[in-house]
Nucleic acid binder design. Sequence first.
DNA 1: GTGAAAGCGCTAACAA
DNA 2: TTGTTAGCGCTTTCAC
Lengths: 336, 336
Amino acid sequence: MSNIREVARLAGVSVATVSRTLASPERVLPQTRDKVNAAVKQAGYHPNLMAVQFRSRKTANLVILVPTIANPFFARVISGAQQAAQCAGYRLLLCDTQGQEAIEREFAELVPGHQADGVIQLRAFDPFLGHPPGSATPPIVNACEIIAGTPYPTVSLDNRGGAQAMTRHLIDLGHRRIGLIKGPLSSPLTQERLAGYQDALGDAGIEFDTALVHHGDFTLQAGYDGATALIQGPHRPTALFCENDEMAIGALKRIKEAGLQVPTDISVAGFDDISMAAYCDPPLTTVEQPAEDFGRHAVHMLVALIENKPLAERHVQLPFTLKIRASACAPAGAGR
Amino acid sequence: MSNIREVARLAGVSVATVSRTLASPERVLPQTRDKVNAAVKQAGYHPNLMAVQFRSRKTANLVILVPTIANPFFARVISGAQQAAQCAGYRLLLCDTQGQEAIEREFAELVPGHQADGVIQLRAFDPFLGHPPGSATPPIVNACEIIAGTPYPTVSLDNRGGAQAMTRHLIDLGHRRIGLIKGPLSSPLTQERLAGYQDALGDAGIEFDTALVHHGDFTLQAGYDGATALIQGPHRPTALFCENDEMAIGALKRIKEAGLQVPTDISVAGFDDISMAAYCDPPLTTVEQPAEDFGRHAVHMLVALIENKPLAERHVQLPFTLKIRASACAPAGAGR
DNA sequence: GTGAAAGCGCTAACAA
DNA sequence: TTGTTAGCGCTTTCAC
C-alpha cells in the first residue's frame, strides 16, 4: 500500500504539501496541486483513514444501537438517521443488538475508544452504565424508548397520549370491552401506553379489567397468541388494541381463523403505522408515528452535542396522528 | 482523556507492560497485572482504538452494503451476517445505501482506507469499479444479487430454478395464463427469475405473452399497481406470480378491492417467504430463501479472504424451498 | 506557498 | 518477565 511519503516523492514535493493538497487544495498553487494529484493517481494512493482520524482525532462515525432491524418501524427510524448523518458529514454505524446489553456495551465502547464520535440508543438501556464517574459522559442521545429518569437528551413520542387517543377513539365508536395486547413488561414504552389506555378507560367510567390485557413481545406471533387468549370465553372484547402493528396483524389472522369478522365482530387497532398497515385486510386503524423524524432529530442533537453547539431542546417530543382505516368500527348492537 | 503513558506511570511500570497486560495478560506476572488493572481503573483508561488499529493494522470491521434495510428479506440477511461476524470476532458496519452507487462507493472506500477489513455487497454493483488496476482487489464478497461475470466470491440462490419451480407448480395446478410481476429491468436477479418463468412455460408448451408481464420495484405499491394493470381486460390471468412477497401482498389487496377472491378467482404466489407471508390473507404460497444463510456464508467467506485462508468454494449456491400455502389453488373450471 | 520536523497513542522488536 | 525504543501514516506548527 502506497503512503503519503511515496506520493510526495513521486510529485517531488514534501509530505506536508501532499497533505495540504488533499485537505485544503486552495492553500496550494494550482501547478503543485496538479503534480500531486497526478502522483496520487500514479501511486494508487488512498489515505489511511485510520491514521488520518487518529491524528486529527475526529472519526465522523456515529453509532446507532437498534434492538432489531427486522422491525419495520426501526427500519424507518434508521433511514431518517442515515439521511441526516449523511447531510451532517457523518457515517452511521448500524448495530443490530438483538436487545442484548453485552452487544450494546461493546459497540458503545467505540466512543470512548475514539472510533466513533457518539451513539444513539433506541432502547431503554444505558450502554454507559457504570462507566467511571470521573470521566465526562460520552455524547449520546436516547430515542424512541426512553430510559427512565435519564440525564441524556431524548427524542420520544407521547406514548401515553397516543394510546389514550386510540382507546378513546374506540370508546367513542361504542366499545366498552377493549382488549389490550401489550409489549413486554420490561419496556417503559409499553407501560406508558398501558397508562394511556387506562386514562381513556377512566375518563369514560369504564373499569380496568386485567383479564383483557395480554403481554406480547411485538412480534406477529405474539399478536396471534394474544388474540387467541383474548377472544375465547363467552364474554369476549369487541375491540383489540395492539401496541404495535405487527401484533395487530397477527391478531387479525387469529380472529379470522376463529370465523369472526373484522371489524364487524371485533375491531382491531395498532400502533406505528408501518407500511404493511395500509395493505393488510382490512387496512389497519393505527397510531402513526413520524418514524424517520426520530432518526433525524436524534442525529441532529447528537451532532450538536459532539460539536459543542447549544441544544435547542434537550427533550424533543414528536407528534402522533390517529390513522383511521377500516379495521375498527362501531360494535354490533351499539346504541350509536 | 488518559493514555497508556499515564497508566504506566500510575502503575509504576512501562507502557509496554500496560500494552501487554491488555493484549495478552498471560505474558505478565499476576501481581503486575493487578497493579496495571488498578491503574487502568483509577485513570478511567480506554485504549484509543484508533491508535491500536492504526498501529496493528487490523480493524475487525466488516462493511455490509444493503440496498434498503426497510426490506424484511435483507433484514434477515443482516441478522445472519451479524451473528457470524460476532462469532468470528468482527464488527459489522451496516450501510443502507438506498441503492445509490455514490454511497456504496464511499463506504467501500473504508477498506482501502484501512478503516474496515472487507466488504459485503448485496447488490449487483461493483463498488470498486474503476479502482486503480495495479492494486490488488480489496476483500469483497457479493451476495444475494450477483454482479454479472464478477470475479468476486459469491453467495447466491438459484433464482432461475426457484422461479421455474413456482411457475411449474402453478401450471401443475392447472393455470395457463400466469401473470408475472417483476422487479426492475436493471436487476440481474429479476432477469433470472423471468428466465425461470419462461423455462417452465416452455416446458409446458405455453406461449410467453409479454402482456402478462409487469415491471415493479419490489414495493407493496408496485404489487398493487401491477395487479391493477394485469387484472383488467376481458382475458385476465388466473394466477399472478410476484417476484417478492411484498409485491404479492400489494397485489392481494388490489385483487380483493376488485371484488375478486384469492385463490378461487386468481391465485397469487410470491418469493422470499418474509415473516408476513404466513400472516397475510390468504397465507402466501411462496419460494422460501434461507435469508440468514446468505449473511452467514458471506461473512465466513469474507473472513477467510481477509485472513488469507483457503476458500472451500468461491461460489456458494443456496437451496430454495417451495412453501405451499393457501394463496394458490387450481383455477375455476380446471380440468383437474 | 512550501518544507522540515515534531509527535498523536500505541505495538512490537529487541535488549536486559 | 519487563523495559527501551523505533516507528505506524498522517497533520500541523513554525520557519523559510
